[in-house]
Amino acid sequence: MSSPFLLNPAITFLNHGSFGACPKPIFEEFQRFQLELESDPVDFIQRKQPAYLKTARESLAKFVGCQAQDLFFTSNPTFAINTIMRSIQLKEGDEILATNHEYGAMDRTWNFYCKKSGAKYIRQNITLPVTSKEQILEEFWKGYNANTKVVFLNQISSATALIFPVKEICERAKELGLITIVDGAHVPGHIDLNIEELAPDYYTATLHKWMLAPKGSSFLYVKPTLQNELEPLVVSWGYESVAPGESQFLDYHELQGTRDVSVFLCTPKVIEFLEKNNWKAVSKNCKQIVLDNCQRFCDLLNTQPISPITSEFLGQMASIPINTSNPTALKNVLFETYKIQVPVMPLNGDYYIRYSINGYNTQEDLDVLYKALEDIIKTTDLIQV
């Protein structure tokens, strides 16, 4: 499946998890909308765009398991979390319970909010290696107390690539009367998702990672009973609109003046590509490659897996602990000398080399990485084994 992608064939690309990769048919659809926009910007923005956005929302909602009127497009999950942050109205001493596996931009967002509001952001420790789902749940809820008002967590961790038991956490949080906010950046197109079954209050995720959309395509789902409480991050024409649309929620968050929404409008084409190419089967094969290689890389690096090597904890990514005193130099050597694009991820003072596998990858790509790491171990002091 490498031929539809625009990736440089000279690079061994093992970093789909960071920003995704877009196939040619989807990218051409993106450019088609941009050309249509530029051919008559007034007609496109004022007349066509609302209907196009509705069609895109409807196709996305069906794919992720919710109603089309309950989500809107954003450029990335960080934008979505900033929107929520603006509206949740916590007071001094209230607590946001998260884990110490969250994405760095999200940590920074909540730290900013806490400095302004006096609330506290609790990064509850989840011990590595994870041994079971029950361990995660037990350790996570040790961070709960009477001051906890919000639960925030990623469904798949960026640094560790671990899948978290979000459904169980949302269910318990609901029993406790807590607000639930889920960062599902890595989820759509990667593992099964039905937002209404998970039943969070807020859910954000990307299309430009595992759904293969062009860069800058994400969404925010908001539970219907909370939609009128969500303030727009950008106040624009949708606020007190002179021509209200189907809902105040969509008016506030979709109508933001002049912007290129072409990336959002590609969504039906994105889903068509996934279905036409049986991407669930492609994904299943990729996941098996991830599992088959995890212990092999741990053995090479003389480290231990950070979870059981099963589909309960791993999807199309795996993070292998690596002992290095200079992660930046290691990443640079892998790219500049060996032409391998793979991240060396920091988290809580430790480092992980995280490989991602998608339809354009083969076992040979991981063999290239393995041989490069063997060579670096033998010829440099960048990796300690």
Rank of each mutant, 00 (worst) to 15 (best):
L314F: 01
Y360T: 11
S158T: 11
K378E: 10
R354W: 01
F152T: 06
T204D: 13
N82L: 15
W210P: 04
F219T: 02
G238V: 06
A21V: 08
R57T: 04
K54A: 12
Q341M: 14
C266V: 15
G143R: 12
H253A: 03
R172E: 11
S39L: 01
F5A: 02
I289H: 08
I322K: 06
Q288K: 13
W210R: 15
G238L: 13
I181S: 01
N194A: 12
L137V: 08
V368H: 11
L330A: 08
Q31H: 09
N125C: 03
R32Y: 12
P188K: 03
S325M: 08
F273Q: 00
F79M: 10
H253F: 04
Q89T: 11
Y121C: 09
I383Q: 08
F313C: 00
L14S: 06
P343T: 11
T74D: 02
V282K: 10
L250W: 12
K287N: 05
E138V: 11
E254I: 02
V282D: 08
E139L: 06
I96S: 01
L265P: 02
G17H: 06
L53W: 02
T267Q: 10
A105K: 14
V42I: 14
F249C: 00
A51K: 10
T160P: 02
M1P: 13
D201L: 05
V182Q: 00
S262R: 03
L330S: 09
E275K: 15
F63S: 03
G349N: 09
T83F: 08
L291Y: 13
E168W: 03
T12M: 02
V151Y: 01
T225I: 10
V385M: 13
Q295W: 03
T379D: 02
E29F: 01
I309L: 08
F164G: 00
V282E: 15
I195A: 01
R57Y: 06
P268W: 14
T206D: 15
M85Y: 05
D70Q: 14
Y144C: 08
K287V: 08
G359H: 07
I88F: 06
L153H: 12
L60E: 05
L334P: 13
D292K: 14
D365F: 06
D375L: 03
L212F: 13
K287C: 07
P4G: 07
Y52A: 11
V263S: 09
E29Y: 00
I45W: 14
N332Q: 14
